[in-house]
Nucleic acid binder design. Structure first.
Lengths: 348, 348
DNA sequence: CAATGGCATTTGAACGTTCCAATCAACTCG
DNA sequence: CGAGTTGATTGGAACGTTCAAATGCCATTG
């Protein structure tokens, strides 16, 4: 029993391209063109088809598109539990990434990367099974087999974070940590500080060395000494508290820390010696973790532009997909100093 | 120019079911059955087909499966930036969820939920476009339009977290906060504490009230007074520090906090009055955020079983999918007390 | 006026899988 | 010994889309 071609389907089934076509009085291909190559249609026809699409609430079925075009509009992201207290950073980055992807008509497909191991199985599966169009890699701190592997297979990818060791492969977007600590020094100098110390992570971590570098170069630029003004600690407060002590002993009036966690250690060290952070000694952290705003005094800190990072990753990835042979593009994003209450003028 | 049926394809193209079939000398359908209903095949045939599949490295193309079966093996998850310092919790939950999904042959598809608004557009799109099989909802703290909407449309979903207001719809898995604070009281009582205070969030948040409840019931069980032993504060340390003062004034020897953030406020309040947390006064936090382990003294805290939560969410969702009409199932997971250095015996 | 070319649209096939019904051989049973 | 039953396998169609090529139309052109 054929039903009238224009009757709205009584049973709520998914609207297909063919249904739209019939109703608009054109062929399925024309409807497809209306969506993918509207310039091919006569304006009049285009308008009619588009109206019909809207009326019927038609949405193309992605699986069918994927099957035909071999592109899934999916971006793979290997999630792993963030080490230390960098979870807030990754959380916000992931959100930004997802949002930027959405706006470009893509979605993020997660897969659980085993914590330690940067295994490739997951990626392989994603490519074969889901026809993932590309990957965003994060935590590419150390030489990372994934990059070489993806390069060889010709799968587009973009890193969030530079590769600090080994040959640089492919595109990445990263936050310019050196610029962040440089700005921190500038801020402190403008307040009148001269004895500005740096509390960093043990050397050898690319990210940490980068942040130290910015402090050093800004100090040099201002003709301020760096000798004896630098200490290092792993990322926990107890250790930081101990490490920062000698810096305070030698009369530092300000401490720039490589992370908010380390900055919190400074707070504790100061309280231990009955000094008040943000009053007797200025402290600046890094990451603008949620905790920073909630500490008292509020911790001045270098905020990473995570929304921009997410956007850039998507942009670079899309560019790579459309032009696989283009030379790699690298983007360094400027972090911004968030000034709160922990950075007073010295001796005030 | 037809090429020998058994020659391994010279150009690396994707291996399809049909290729496997030809090589194994069976029909495509038989290969399909070997994967989906192996019990239909004669053991001998099954073995041969499976060997061929392995040899050729065949993987079924998900888009084709989705198109045919209308099931994508995808689970939607609306990611939103975690408020306060709960990012670590969500980060670990998401990882656990992804892992549990992987193990069940599913993957997590992210979409960016606008921060404030619990808009439905995203869900609708995910269903229509990607044929998402179901959703995991988190942050269902307040009455949530999504649940009613999904229920009406017959889309399977599971909540991570109870719905605290409004009618309970659907399945959920949640952490038994009351049980966590109850256990905290037990621990402190066993150490000899009697004057145990609770520092919570303002009343009205389901999660917070739940945690308060556990403290209260355990105190009552032990015949200990709760009057004047309870304070509330929003989730930041400055506010917590102020709020906890009256509790300390009235001689509490232990404080249980509704979050690690609040516990950190206690630490600060104690230091302010030259008392040592974990020595003069015991402190217990909630969430086992990464910070807790790094504080000094190490903060005893109630850890949420996030891996179990992820697993349960997947399990419940899968159960709902296979039996849409089954009565709702709710799972309360037991948190566990992580004892560190902040909980000594009183007066020790 | 037949041939040429450009434009708008249509036709037929294909992507890789699974559903449904059909086939075929080997057994069982009255 | 033929009809029915079971078990293993196959054939054809369909899911919804886009690709590549074909069609029809109209205006130009030699």
């Amino acid at each position: 029993m054929p039903r009238s071609p224009n009757a709205p389907s009584p049973k709520a089934g998914p609207v297909t391209l063919a249904m739209v076509a019939r109703r608009a009085g054109v062929s399925p291909q024309t409807v497809s063109n209306a969506l993918n190559s509207p310039e091919l249609l006569r304006p009049e026809t285009l308008e009619r088809v588009q109206r019909t699409i809207d009326e019927m609430g038609y949405r193309p079925h992605r699986a069918a598109q994927t099957l035909r075009t071999r592109s899934s509009k999916l971006i793979g992201y290997g999630i792993r539990p963030a080490p230390g207290n960098s979870a807030p950073v990754m959380d916000r980055f992931l959100h930004a990434l997802s949002q930027a992807a959405d706006e470009a008509g893509y979605r993020i497909l997660l897969f659980a990367s085993p914590p330690g191991n940067a295994s490739l199985d997951g990626h392989e599966e994603l490519i074969d099974l889901h026809s993932v169009d590309g990957f965003v890699l994060s935590g590419t701190d150390r030489g990372d087999p994934r990059q070489a592997w993806l390069t060889k297979r010709g799968i587009p990818f973009v890193g969030f974070g530079r590769m600090w060791s080994g040959r640089q492969l492919g595109d990445w977007a990263d936050v310019d940590g050196a610029s962040g600590t440089d700005a921190a020094v500038e801020h402190l100098v403008s307040l009148g500080h001269r004895r500005i110390a740096f509390l960093g992570w043990p050397r050898g971590s690319g990210v940490g060395d980068d942040r130290a570098e910015g402090w050093q170069r800004a100090m040099r630029r201002h003709g301020l000494p760096v000798r004896g003004r630098r200490a290092q600690s792993v990322d926990d407060t107890a250790s930081a508290r101990a490490a920062v002590a000698p810096l305070l002993d030698t009369g530092a009036t300000a401490v720039i820390a490589a992370s908010d966690m380390l900055a919190l250690g400074c707070y504790q060290a100061l309280r231990e010696r009955d000094a008040t952070p943000g009053k007797d000694v200025a402290v600046i952290g890094f990451d603008d973790s949620p905790t920073a705003a909630l500490l008292s005094p509020g911790l001045s800190t270098v905020a990473q532009p995570l929304e921009a990072a997410g956007r850039e990753c998507v942009r670079l990835l899309l560019a790579r997909m459309s032009e696989p042979g283009a030379p790699p593009e690298r983007v360094l994003l400027e972090p911004s100093l968030v000034v709160r209450d922990s950075t007073p003028a010295p001796g005030s």
